[in-house]
Write a protein that binds this DNA or RNA. Structure first.
Length: 789
DNA sequence: ACCGTCTGTCTTTTT
DNA sequence: GACAGACGGT
């Protein structure tokens, strides 16, 4: 087993031979230690799930610093997310006992932005360029697509933008897109549109995320002396999640590493799940060719999961071709087998999961250690409803992020416009928000004028107001807005930026707009606006704050109460839980039909890796489940179990399938016929014969043939079966319609008793119960307190 | 200019 | 079932 690789390398600068190795090294196993100590030359660390990847990365950095092999200024450490960067920073500081200053540690995008700001002029930008978010990009692209005179039904801006982003991911600028590459995409006009888009960005002094890397490459290639400086500087390079890099990122790394060739990439080809956004598994598969003489270290000892879980995951992933290959092993106990459960429909599945969760709780497990991992966001809904009914607290990961909320974007647009008068996108966003009587026709005129005279919208508007081109009403409205803008720009010079923000939102009428809004989420939006201003205080300048916002889009969540975690498989990567539920393993759902249709075998393999990621999140137990029927987009569909189900090894699995279903066996409904939903046939109005009798096989004719697949569209009430016991029947369902309860109402809940509503969001209420604490509950499960009893 | 209604669409996500 | 975008009426 021991290879010659394990002999220590003589290193004049490290501790003298025979000295005791640093403490942090003794905490590592053999291969981890090899990965840490192979400091020179290219190294690929293949880190299987749960094998201590982060420990290796951080220890390696600490090792470089404490042996004196490198100073902080020699290091470049690259991650994908801010979270990963932060974690690395904290853990290295903990290892060496003090924070590290002066190193380059950050995300690809943050580091590239830093470089680009220093050399912006090389690519025709000013150093204070704006980084656009997806919303801005899309609106810009819509204008361009419209101008390009193509069928925007067939080629929506969204799709065109996506294509351009993929080109950027591959390091291809508009000049590199020939006929061969573009094909007839966007009616053959894709290269032209791409050029226009880049041109517009330059005029706006703006870049999108892809540009950050792409412009870096342009700078490096056109100005060798600049590249040389960075190559010289970064003597040791470390890359996390290498399997997620795209071509542009790979080229960037390769250029930077060319001089010293001390590059260490850590990753796992089996966990590459971001191909759809440009990641190339090929980068990690090709590492040895790209960096000749590379050393490969495999981390295969898993410290996370039981044997059964590991077996299930390993056998599944073995169905993929072209892997670098790892054999995960553990000294952990066999543990419980993975439960595989087939159920009637999504509702039954959610009920099954919630029952199991309650069982875990009864055995003393914590909700914090439970996760439900789904393929797509819409799948969380069924679980949310069930958890609200059952009184299980949950947290939903991956909702709209703070800086992506509408009101926050609007507020930011105001700030951007004041900060950068030429920010046309910001101008358009807020010019008529709140309504100021500046509508489409005025804007069209303004656009034409601005384009003809080649000036930003703000300036064009100022000129236009001085003419008689506009109707009097529009002229007056626009004139007033321009005066306001002028005044606010004065504030930007004279006032602290938080005060600027407050007065801006106030005087523009934006705050008032939400105050007058009667919709239930308006108060929340006002809260968010306040929070934004509070958040700004942490930055010294408006610029600093705006840069933070463009690069560090994240949610700030601090919660104390134990909750079940509900999220997508993608966002679960890198996390671990004692108990993991993997619902929705059906063909078409997972693997997702679109992945199969659009990317064929490679899509399927990526889906399989996603399944692998899901299983390997579990420490103690995992549940895989599938439903025979599901309402997808309000249509009933019958489904067959995912092919991944059959790829799980029989001896690591306990399979339980409800009777009458595909693969049924081993289990009897046991005198609970009422468990079965009635009237699946969906006869008109749910009346007539058959209701509730034969539910087993009527969809069996639905083979793969499109158009012939049985569809059911039963009325909703036919299925709204599982209501809370008694409560609803005893009353005349007083609370059925949403919005019947408001904040402050006293209510009664059968399970939790009396309480007060503290927040309402549609029919979901947050209630502070007198005895049971704060819970989120469906409105239909509570009564007004005075009607209870 | 603005507002209501209809239609079609509907992965995955970070920066 | 939810949302965005188009369209047509006031």
């Amino acid at each position: 087993m021991n290879s010659d690789d394990d002999s220590p390398r003589p290193d004049p600068r490290s501790a003298p031979a025979g000295a005791r190795p640093p403490l942090y090294l003794s905490a590592l196993n053999e291969s981890q230690r090899a990965a840490v100590e192979a400091l020179d030359g290219p190294v690929l660390v293949l880190a299987g799930a749960g094998t201590g990847k982060t420990r290796v990365l951080t220890t390696r950095l600490a090792h470089l610093l404490t042996t004196g092999k490198a100073g902080p200024g020699d290091l470049l450490a690259v991650t994908f997310t801010n979270k990963a960067a932060r974690e690395m920073k904290d853990r290295v500081a903990a290892l060496i006992g003090r924070p590290v200053e002066g190193w380059w540690l950050g995300t690809f995008h943050a580091l590239a932005a830093r470089i680009l700001r220093s050399h912006a002029e090389v690519v025709g930008l000013k150093p204070n360029f704006t980084i656009l978010d997806t919303d801005d990009q899309l609106r810009l692209m819509k204008q361009i697509v419209q101008a390009a005179d193509i069928d925007d039904k067939k080629w929506p801006a969204r799709a065109v933008l996506h294509q351009i982003e993929r080109w950027k991911d591959r390091g291809l600028g508009p000049e590199k897109i020939g006929i061969a590459e573009a094909g007839d995409f966007a009616g053959g006009k894709a290269p032209e549109i791409y050029r226009d888009y880049q041109e517009r960005l330059r005029t706006l002094n703006a870049v999108d995320f892809g540009d950050l890397l792409l412009h870096n490459l342009t700078i490096f290639l056109s100005r060798p002396e600049i590249l040389e400086r960075y190559q010289q500087r970064f003597r040791y390079i470390l890359v996390d999640e290498y399997q997620d890099t795209n071509v542009a990122q790979y080229l960037w790394l390769r250029l930077l590493a060319q001089k010293h060739r001390n590059i260490c990439c850590v990753g796992d080809d089996d966990q590459s799940i971001y191909g759809w956004r440009g990641a190339e598994v090929g980068n990690i598969l090709r590492f040895e060719q790209d960096f000749p003489g590379a050393r490969i270290v495999r981390l295969e000892r898993n410290y996370r999961s039981t044997q059964h879980i590991l077996r299930a995951a390993s056998d599944l992933i073995a169905h993929n071709d072209g892997r670098l290959g790892k054999t995960l092993w553990t000294e952990d106990e066999p543990g419980e087998k993975v439960i595989l459960r087939g159920l009637w429909d999504g509702e039954a599945e959610a009920r099954f999961v919630s029952d199991e969760i309650e069982a875990i709780e009864r055995r003393g497990g914590s909700l914090d250690q439970i996760a439900i991992l789904v393929r797509a966001g819409y799948q969380t809904r069924e679980f949310e409803e069930r958890f609200l009914n059952a009184g299980i607290s949950y947290r939903l990961v991956g909702g709209p992020r703070f800086y992506e909320r509408q009101e926050i974007r609007d507020a930011l647009a105001y700030l951007r416009l004041v900060h950068q008068p030429a920010d046309d996108l910001a101008f358009e966003r807020v010019v008529n928000l709140p309504r100021r009587g500046i509508g489409d026709s005025t804007m069209q005129l303004l656009h034409r004028f601005a384009r003809a005279s080649e000036m930003p919208l703000t300036e064009a508007a100022l000129r236009l107001v001085g003419t008689d081109e506009l109707k009097p009403a529009a002229k007056k409205a626009l004139g007033r807005f321009m005066e306001d803008l002028e005044r606010w720009r004065g504030f930007a010079r004279d006032l602290p930026h938080t005060e600027l923000a407050e007065r801006l939102l106030d005087e523009s009428g934006y705050t008032a707009m939400w105050q007058n809004d009667r919709s239930p989420d308006a108060p929340g939006r006002l809260e968010n606006l306040k929070e934004l201003v509070v958040g700004m205080a942490e930055f010294d300048t408006l610029e600093g704050f705006l840069e933070h916002v463009s690069l560090v889009m994240e949610n700030v969540t601090s919660e104390s109460e134990a909750k079940v975690t509900l999220m997508t498989l993608h966002s679960a990567k890198g996390l671990e839980f004692d108990y993991v539920f993997l619902p929705g393993w059906e063909e078409g759902v997972f693997p997702h039909q679109r992945a199969l249709d659009e990317t064929g075998l490679s899509g399927l393999e990526e889906e399989r890796r996603l399944a692998y990621v899901g299983l390997t999140r579990a420490r103690k137990r995992a549940w895989v489940s599938y439903a025979a029927n599901r309402r997808i987009h309000n249509q009933w569909q019958s489904l067959i179990p995912s092919r991944f189900v059959d790829e799980l090894p029989k001896d690591a699995i306990d399979r339980i399938v409800d009777p009458g279903l595909y693969g049924a066996g081993r289990y009897d409904a046991g005198g609970e016929p009422d468990e079965w939903p009635r009237n699946r046939l969906g006869e008109e109005g749910g009346r007539g014969a058959g209701g509730g009798r034969e539910f087993g096989r009527y969809f069996s004719g639905g083979n793969a043939g499109r158009g012939n697949v049985a569809r059911f569209s039963p009325r909703r009430d036919a299925f709204a079966r599982e209501r809370p016991p008694r409560l609803i029947e005893s009353s005349s369902a007083p609370s059925r319609s949403g919005g019947a309860f408001g904040v402050g109402d006293r209510v009664f809940h059968l399970k939790f008793g009396y309480g007060k509503v503290t927040a309402a969001e549609g029919d979901k209420l947050e209630i502070e119960f007198d005895k049971a604490g704060t819970k989120r509950v469906m409105a239909s499960f509570v009564l007004p307190a005075d009607q209870a009893g």
